[in-house]
């Protein structure tokens, strides 16, 4: 990862102050927590096992992005809003080697993972000693942390699942950017994993979109 100064965007969500980070992560400083969604670890491993020649390296790079964020903001908890795994993993997956190194470097880090639909393909039984799995979601301060977006029972919902992106088009130029999609009772985080694709969102009136460029988070006007 090249060194650079990222500009975060500070926001109030559900009564709590949070930081939106251009690395597609949300930082909840009050709870010393880093919140990310949709890592899809092991995607390239699954591809290789099916004969698709994808090189390895993405898992280690994504874990290093997490490590850099944890370090920079001195955070103690990592919360993953589902789809930690892409498919049922295999013990020989390149991902596990990278993850063991990450775990060894962060022995006291609490890793809490909400089970996502992809994790239910067979990932749930793994990493029981290193990760706390939450089948339905968990509460964190004013937030309810879940995989699929929607109205919550415990508070303002932070979710993932959708891999939201926005397509900007103006002046003949176009760009497709991952976004935080902030709605009245929930917010959808962009997907963190570097092997994930995106789906364009259809914001409704009153929604807010915050787009991640390489080094900053920009509020995008919603028509």
């Amino acid at each position: 990862m090249p060194e650079r100064t990222a500009q975060v965007l500070e926001l109030e969500l559900g009564g709590e102050r949070v930081l939106l980070h251009p690395e597609r992560a949300l930082i909840c400083a009050a709870h010393r927590a880093l919140v990310v969604a949709d890592l899809h670890f092991g995607k390239d491993d699954a591809f290789r096992r099916s004969g698709l020649a994808w090189p390895a390296g993405a898992a280690a790079a994504d874990l290093e992005r997490l490590a850099a964020l944890l370090r920079e903001y001195a955070l103690e908890r990592l919360v993953v809003l589902g789809d930690f795994f892409h498919a049922a993993p295999d013990p020989a997956d390149d991902f596990f080697a990278a993850f063991r190194a990450f775990r060894a470097a962060h022995p006291r880090l609490a890793i809490e993972v909400v089970a996502g639909n992809h994790d239910r393909h067979g990932g749930l039984g793994w990493l029981a000693e290193a990760v706390t799995w939450h089948a339905d979601g968990l509460a964190l301060g004013a937030f309810e942390l879940r995989h699929e977006p929607g109205r919550g029972l415990l508070g303002y919902v932070l979710a993932g699942h959708l891999h939201p992106v926005a397509v900007l088009a103006a002046g003949g130029d176009r760009a497709r950017l991952p976004v935080f999609w902030v709605r009245a009772d929930h917010a959808v985080l962009p997907s963190f994993g570097s092997l994930t694709g995106g789906h364009p969102v259809r914001p409704a009136r009153g929604d807010r979109l915050y787009a991640c460029t390489r080094s900053r988070v920009l509020a995008v006007p919603v028509r």
């Binding site: 103006a170 003949g172 130029d173 176009r174 787009a211 995008v220 006007p221």
Partner: peptide, 30 residues
Amino acid sequence: ALQSQVVSTEDWETRVLRMVETLERAAGDA
């Protein structure tokens, strides 16, 4: 022009910022 593509040596973020500005102006006009 609707089918066109963009070539740039400008910083990508400069382009994105300009697009956001353009969109904001358009939203303000509406």
